[in-house]
């Protein structure tokens, strides 16, 4: 939307290795206030890992991550807590506390970080749960609700403190099309109305194009393509086209073993003939 607004996130030359495998290999991008950045990419390409580095729960091998202008990679726990109060995070698994009820999970940040009375908190919890289409589930435990419901409770919890910045890891996976639309609508409203900034990891192309103001596609450790939804839709990069149209046949490697994965990264960038193990479809 406003690419010249205040810069909220600055990621520079981010490198993360697990053993000698570079899952993130020199990633740089910025996110400005009010934007919704959608991060796409194949399963296991490092999207969740990238988010974990942005929220400061993983330390990079090298490179820098700045949130609200402050470098988070070298921060102590105490310093980073201050930054963390300003953003919310929805984990891919929901990461609800199993010992608390749905209501208590959403209330947790409010109980811990505000002086609100129990009545006020109850009110806010109700309102947040309503926003994600869950009313009357406050007293259930996380293991008594479905996967998609857990996701939405996680989202309500991430929004409990009305953060300026929201990270969500696949908020709509496991949701039916109507609920997906509700969650997308919610993201749109929040980024429009209160100038919240959102970073969303998504596999769901319909949803991604609906909410994104900018998109990044990850592949073999780096950014394969980035731009506005229109630029991505019209991208000439075959990997991008294969991904957004969900084709099995194309340049994206499908069947990588760990060894191949390594080789593949050594010869990067090789987007056009990177696939050595490709499914060959016999057309009927």
């Amino acid at each position: 939307m406003n690419a010249n607004g205040e810069t909220i996130i600055e990621v520079e030359h981010l490198v993360r290795r697990f053993g000698d495998r570079a899952v993130l290999d020199g990633i740089s991008f910025n996110v400005h206030r009010g934007e919704t950045l959608v991060i796409m990419g194949g399963s296991g390409c490092g999207k969740s890992t990238l988010l974990r580095h942005m929220i400061g729960s993983m330390k990079p091998t090298s490179g820098s991550v700045k949130l609200f202008g402050e470098e988070v990679t070298g921060m102590t726990e105490r310093e980073i807590e201050r930054v963390r109060l300003r953003f919310g995070m929805l984990f891919q698994s929901g990461a609800l506390l199993a010992s608390l009820t749905v209501g208590e999970n959403v209330a947790l940040p409010l109980v811990q970080h505000t002086d609100k009375s129990p009545d006020e908190i109850e009110q806010i919890v109700k309102q947040k749960l309503e926003m994600v289409g869950l009313t009357g589930f406050e007293d259930l435990k996380p293991d008594e609700i479905s996967g998609g419901m857990k996701k939405r409770v996680g989202l309500a919890r991430a929004l409990a403190l009305d953060p300026e910045l929201l990270f969500s890891d696949e908020p709509t996976s496991g949701l039916d099309p109507i609920m997906t639309a509700v969650v997308d609508e919610l993201t749109l409203n929040l980024t429009k109305g209160s100038h919240m900034t959102a970073v969303v990891v998504s596999h769901d192309m319909t949803s991604a194009f609906r909410i994104a103001t900018r998109m990044i596609m990850l592949g073999h450790g780096s950014i394969v393509a980035q731009g506005t939804p229109d630029e991505i839709r019209n991208s000439s990069n075959p990997e991008v086209q294969q991904f957004i149209h969900g084709k099995a046949d194309g340049p994206i490697p499908l069947n990588l073993s760990q060894e191949e994965h390594k080789d593949h990264q050594h010869v990067r960038p090789r987007p056009f003939f990177g696939a050595r193990f490709r499914f060959h479809h016999k057309h009927p």
């Binding site: 729960s57 984990f91 506390l97 199993a98 940040p109 811990q112």
Partner: peptide
């Protein structure tokens, strides 16, 4: 076992990200 399960199911990480110290909590 309880804390270990919380660790592997990302609950501890979620606490940290909510700026709740797991030792304190």
């Amino acid at each position: 076992a309880e804390l270990g399960t919380m660790k592997v199911s990302e609950e501890i990480e979620a606490l940290e990200v909510m700026a709740i110290n797991p030792v304190q909590y």
